[in-house]
Design a protein around this nucleic acid. Structure first.
Length: 1191
RNA sequence: GCGGGUAUGGUGAAAUUGGUAGACACGCCAGACUUAGGAUCUGGUGCCGCAAGGUGUGAAGGUUCGAGUCCUUUUACCCGCACCA
């Protein structure tokens, strides 16, 4: 009887499906075990051999655990919302749902062929309304929650309202937007409903806010940080720009610390944990405030300069910052409701009627004054009826204001009403005599009044005395306000230049140091020294406060910056505060130094000094300890069709949740999947929302006839919404009332083993942990972490193609252009080539008579071979030309101007040797350089509209190489698992994928070795059958047979527990080889063996099991138990070493003592031969292990 | 630059955690049988050497009776993060 995998595999797959063999129970006496695979996105390409790698591994564990008596949940589903289906829909007009369904059907077919023990009754699809109903529901829960730092958990928003009603928000410690306005309980209660909603939005865990987002014009949508790789979109590699947009965000930053701490409790690979730590980016340090000094001299220096400029540069923020919010708000209210007399006066003095600008109800220091002329330091107060108490208060107030350098004059209501003219005259006179405003005096008021600060975050508060200057990000808000007129031009030019550079360029260009002095100064909090303020693009606007205190002696970047601008205006000498040499480089270590030149920190090390510095800063109110996280809130809106609709509508522009009882909000049908004419997301095309005619009346509490009055949210949720909680849905996949029942959630808790790719390290795996923690906080689930153990299967790499690696010399002779000199480039890749090529052309300094451009390609991948490498080593290489035409023909925004176009569009052949080719290019001069839009100005260099190059190419060496890379459809390298299944069978595929190497390691796919495992299965089969049928007997096996079996039980058990599947396969081979050698056809060996093999090769195992006479599936059989007694040996083949080198082996009884062994070994003639008469100094005998003679 | 990982025959890889390096498989070589096949079986196969022997786990050093394994230094590659203050 021969082994035919086709029949066996089809038969058992059908059996499993029919008998629901792998359906998990939600009530079971057995211990639970939850094995999860990362569910696939059903792409049009179908599965390739890389997909099943993880699934096979998890399936082995699932089957093994079932044998071990666990109630195993091993589900599978589809992450079926996403971009590719939508892109396809845009191209073809096919509904994404249709293509998604087709793709899923194909995936399912392929998965079924491999024989996974999935419980398909629990399948989920994120694009099913039954499913996304609960995604929407979770969104609502997030909206209805805020994060309380004190409780370290999310709480319902109703608690927040209670809190505000009771005590306002001044003293609560909650996670919220930056810069929320402070209010008291009374104020809160007096706010309008809309105002309350606006405020609450700043606290909700999902919130709508105008934020700077990553906008990808090519995809027409925003992207989350994890969807961007090296400054371009993860999907498609399109450029991404920063843009301010109103978008939904997830306040994941609230969970930064818990996400970080939680990593300690889970069994994940160090690299993934490290990625997450990196992404969260915790740094402990301090916020330090540096007082901004107003410009000490009259600003434009010279006569005729208006003191008012102090305000232009200094701003009008003359209020005590600690109470500024309240003052500003109150002032606004006051302005709305002026008294009669105040209004009279205002009409007379407004609009510079007296020659100076007045402000009314303006905040100065701790007060709101009635009228002020800042330029002339003149305050005008209007008093009502004077009571004694009021008088006293006014006196104090006047005193304080005078201390700030203001002259205060007072009028009564009566004076104003009856004698307005004389009042005006008095004011006018005072203006004549008034001193100009002195910002310095306002500052001298100290904490409070108008002092403005630059706030920085530092991890090294201990180096505070090493600060010699400050650097702001060019985008920093203060830049425009503090820059002196002298520096204005330079600063603006720099800011503009920086803004033009794309994110990607700024990242690529790390080495170049650039910056500009603003002319402004800040004050050192302790020494009161003046610290010049610079701007530089090494400071990132998005991290910390976008400003740094520069400590050149202790920070490499500051050091480089200080050195670069050494001697320039505004760059002080580097100050060394370490007892270390900093002449060559900054001393950036946190250990091994003592502070000097550091006042009260002298003699201290990092730890103590940090503590002390923070304490001192806190005392003077200019700093506090602070932990900073890099983790940003995640943008949650996508301007896309194929995603979950938000359960949101708007009233007066404020978002409202659609009541949960109306969920799911079904994704409406649209004509077109593109944005609407007026730029709305694709959902704007929908004319009919399934729920509106039926439910809208309820939603809005108003009568509406088939039309929504309230606009709906037209964005959809991002791809990661549905995948952030799917493991819970599997627990109770068909529950219509809850996302999963309490019983199911309590029973399955969380995932015991999660297997999937590492590409989700900072996306899915972080968001899932976030949602899990949130749902726990709100009491829906109990576990803190969703995935106890995570294994990342390595990528199976495919052969991307054969590539010629060539070493080329290209001489480009620019015939018609004498303005080109010789220049050598060592180029790695033609993209670089093209770039340098342009740089070269742009560089008008390269002018002399030599007109050769010499470019050396070394080991450069030029093109995919289109014909076989052996065919005369001749290939058609079109790539260079193609690149010129597409990527490096720069087109401006209007799509008109092309920088360079190849006119003679011919292929050229490349072969070893020498060719000459004439290119003709058309060049159109373009003005202006805009790297974001790929506009480039070369107009000043070459004005010819066409010119010619003679290109002389010598190919020095050429050889073929296979390029290994990620499998994907675009490379046509995807190996289809079906083909393997058809040819060798699913069991062979399963074994082979495991045999390839350790699960976690990336490996190239190569079917060369597949005959090995295929042969193994045949060999296994032949232990049970010969040509005539079953040959299994009931004889008592020999000790050797038992030994072979139990060795295997032990090894395989350990291997599965340690996820070392490749070595198990080896052990099966060893075992089968041994048993074949022993001619073992004994039931007592072969029955357990079939069970052992079944997790790996379930089909053949089922067949063997049934042929051995068993009813039902082998999956219910108990796993064989290892018994030590079968492995006990009486003898050991000892290796005998001399000075550590193994010379021979000797078989000795294990009963022997070390002394006895020594006696026997020393007596052995081989020992004597080795020793040649010498006596060993030492004899090391480890019984059961080794014998080593030293001497 | 920081963090994580990897490095062993022609190839994929093992190595009981400090104890005979290269299991198992592919490939290759030789042979058997033969229905000539991409079947099955047997033997060989790290490298140098006819052999004895020498040598060998990216490199250099160290600890140890003994190191692929532990320590120090270093190189290359892969992955993640990246002027993160």
């Amino acid at each position: 009887m021969k082994y035919f995998h086709e029949q066996i595999e089809a038969k058992w797959q059908e059996y499993w499906a029919k008998n629901q063999t792998f359906a998990a129970e939600n009530n079971s006496e057995k211990p639970k075990y939850y094995v999860l695979d990362m569910f696939p996105y059903p792409s049009g390409a179908g599965l390739h051999v890389g997909h099943p790698l993880g699934y096979i591994a998890s399936d082995i564990v699932a089957r093994y655990k079932r044998h071990k008596g666990f109630n195993v949940l091993h589900p599978q589903g589809y992450d079926s919302f996403g971009l590719p289906a939508e892109q396809y829909a845009i191209q073809t007009g096919q509904h994404p749902e249709k293509t998604t369904k087709e793709n899923i059907a194909r995936y399912r077919e392929q998965l079924d062929k491999i024989g996974f023990s999935f419980d398909w009754s629990r399948e989920v699809r994120t694009s099913n309304p039954d499913y996304y109903k609960w995604t929407q529901w979770i969104f609502i829960q997030l909206f209805e929650s805020f994060y309380c730092k004190a409780a370290q958990k999310a709480l319902p928003i109703s608690e927040l309202i209670k809190l505000f009603e009771a005590e306002g928000n001044a003293n609560v410690d909650l996670v919220c937007d930056d810069g929320v306005e402070l209010f008291s309980a009374e104020e809160w209660n007096s706010f309008s409903s809309e105002k309350k909603q606006e405020i609450l939005l700043q606290y909700r865990l999902t919130y709508l806010a105008e934020t700077e987002v990553n906008w990808c014009p090519a995809l027409g949508t925003v992207l989350a940080n994890d969807e961007i790789v090296n400054g371009v979109s993860e999907r498609g590699g399109h450029p991404v720009i920063r843009k301010k947009m109103t978008q939904w965000s997830m306040r994941i930053s609230a969970y930064a610390e818990r996400l970080l701490q939680g990593l300690e409790t889970i069994d994940w690979s160090e690299s993934i944990k490290e990625s997450q730590r990196n992404w969260i980016g915790k740094s402990v340090g301090a916020m330090v405030k540096f007082a901004l000094k107003p410009h000490p001299q009259p600003l434009s220096g010279g006569e005729g300069s208006e003191p008012v400029q102090a305000f232009n540069d200094f701003g009008y923020k003359t209020a005590n910052p600690t109470i500024a919010k309240n003052l500003v708000g109150n002032a606004r209210e006051n302005r709305k409701n002026p008294t009669e007399s105040e209004d009279l006066l205002w009409q007379e003095i407004r609009n510079q009627k007296l020659g100076s600008k007045f402000r009314r109800q303006h905040y100065i220091g701790n007060f709101i004054v009635d009228f002020v002329c800042l330029e002339k330091s003149l305050l005008v107060e209007v008093d009502g009826e004077i009571h004694e108490t009021q008088k006293e208060y006014d006196e104090g107030r006047t005193y304080e204001l005078e201390q700030l350098g203001f002259k205060v004059i007072r009028f009564t209501n009566e004076e104003l009403k009856n004698n307005l003219k004389s009042v005006i005259q008095t004011i006018s006179n005072e203006l004549e005599n008034a001193k100009p405003f002195n910002a310095q005096s306002l500052l001298s008021f100290g904490e409070g009044s108008g002092v403005r600060f630059i706030e920085v975050f530092t991890t090294r508060p201990d180096t505070i005395f090493g600060v010699t200057f400050m650097t702001l990000a060019p985008e920093h808000d203060l830049v425009s306000q503090i820059t002196t007129p002298e520096q204005k031009a330079a600063v603006e030019a720099y800011v503009e230049a920086t803004a033009k550079r794309s994110e990607r360029e700024r990242m690529a260009d790390v080495k170049t140091i650039s910056g500009v002095f603003t002319g402004a100064y800040a004050e050192h909090p302790f020494t009161k020294e003046l610290l010049p303020i610079w701007i530089g693009d090494y400071v990132l606007a998005g991290y910390g406060t976008g400003a740094v205190m520069a400590v050149p002696c202790g920070d490499e970047r500051d050091y480089a910056f200080a050195n670069f601008f050494n001697g320039k205006e505004g760059m002080p000498e580097i100050k060394n505060i370490f007892n270390q040499d900093i002449s060559e480089a900054a001393f950036a270590e946190k250990t091994g130094f003592e502070l000097v030149n550091s006042d009260f920190l002298n003699g201290l090390g990092y730890k103590e000094a940090t503590k002390k510095a923070i304490e001192a800063l806190e005392q003077i109110g200019q700093g506090k300890g602070k932990t900073n996280y890099r983790l940003r809130d995640a943008v949650f809106s996508r301007q896309r069709y194929w995603g979950e609709p938000f359960p949101v509508y708007y009233v007066n522009g404020l978002p409202q949740m659609i009541d949960a009882k109306h969920l799911p909000i079904i994704l409406p049908e649209v004509e077109k999947y593109l944005p609407t004419e007026d730029g709305q997301p694709p959902l704007g095309n929908a004319t009919h929302w399934a729920w509106d005619s039926v439910q809208c009346a309820v939603v809005s509490n108003q009568l509406i006839d088939n039309k929504t009055i309230f606009p709906l949210e037209l964005n959809t949720m991002p791809g990661w919404a549905g995948s952030s909680w799917y493991w819970m849905r599997y627990m109770d996949a068909h529950n219509a009332n809850e996302f999963a029942s309490q019983e199911a959630l309590n029973y399955w808790e969380n995932v015991d083993l999660y297997i999937g790719g590492s590409e989700h390290a900072t996306g899915h795996l972080l968001y899932s942990r976030f949602w899990n923690k949130f749902l726990k906080d709100r009491g829906f689930i109990t576990p803190e972490e969703p995935f106890k153990k995570l294994i990342n299967q390595g990528m199976i790499l495919g052969n991307i193609g054969y590539y010629p690696f060539i070493d080329v010399t290209i001489n480009i002779n620019i015939k018609d252009n004498p303005h080109i000199s010789k220049k050598y480039f060592n180029v790695f890749g033609y993209e670089v080539f093209a770039k340098l090529f342009f740089e070269f052309l742009e560089d008008s300094n390269n002018i002399n008579n030599d007109s050769n451009l010499h470019i050396i390609f070394s080991n450069t991948i030029i093109s995919k071979i289109e014909e076989k490498i052996n065919d005369n080593r001749s290939f058609i290489l079109t790539e260079i030309l193609k690149r010129f035409k597409s990527d490096y023909s720069f087109i401006n925004n209007d799509g008109e101007l092309e920088l360079l176009e190849v006119l003679n569009d011919e292929y050229f052949e490349l072969s070893l040797g020498h060719i000459n080719y004439n290119y003709e290019f058309k060049r159109i001069p373009i003005k202006g350089v805009d790297l974001q839009t790929n506009k480039i100005d070369v107009g000043s260099i070459i004005t010819d509209s066409t010119f010619k190059y003679s290109v002389d190419i010598s190919i020095n060496e050429m050889f073929a190489n296979t390029e290994i890379g990620k499998m994907s459809k675009s490379w046509y390298n995807a190996v289809n698992p079906d083909d393997i299944c058809n040819q060798y069978g699913a069991d062979t595929l399963r074994l082979y994928e495991m045999f390839l190497g350790p699960l976690e390691q990336a490996k190239p796919w190569n079917t060369a070795g597949i005959t090995g495992v295929s042969g193994f299965l045949k060999k296994l089969w032949r232990l049970y059958f010969d040509d005539n049928g079953l040959i299994v007997n009931n004889d008592e096996p020999t000790a050797e047979m038992y030994k072979s079996l139990h060795k295997t039980i032990k090894k395989v058990t350990e291997d599965i527990e340690h996820f070392s599947f490749n070595t198990s396969v080896s052990q099966f081979m060893i075992c089968v080889n041994e048993l074949a050698q022993l001619k073992c056809n004994h039931r007592k060996i072969l029955e357990p063996l079939a069970i052992l093999v079944s997790p790996y090769a379930p089909h053949i195992a089922e067949e063997l099991w049934s042929q051995l006479g068993h009813e039902g599936s082998v999956s219910t059989a108990a796993f064989p138990v290892f018994e030590e007694k079968y492995l006990v040996e009486s003898e050991k083949e000892y290796p005998v070493s001399f000075n550590g080198k193994m010379r021979f082996t000797i078989k000795l009884s294990l009963d022997l003592s070390a002394a006895q062994i020594e006696e026997i070994v020393m007596a052995d003639e081989r020992t004597q031969a080795q020793l040649q008469g010498r006596t060993p100094n030492k004899v090391i005998i480890v019984p059961g292990k080794i014998i080593n003679l030293v001497g």
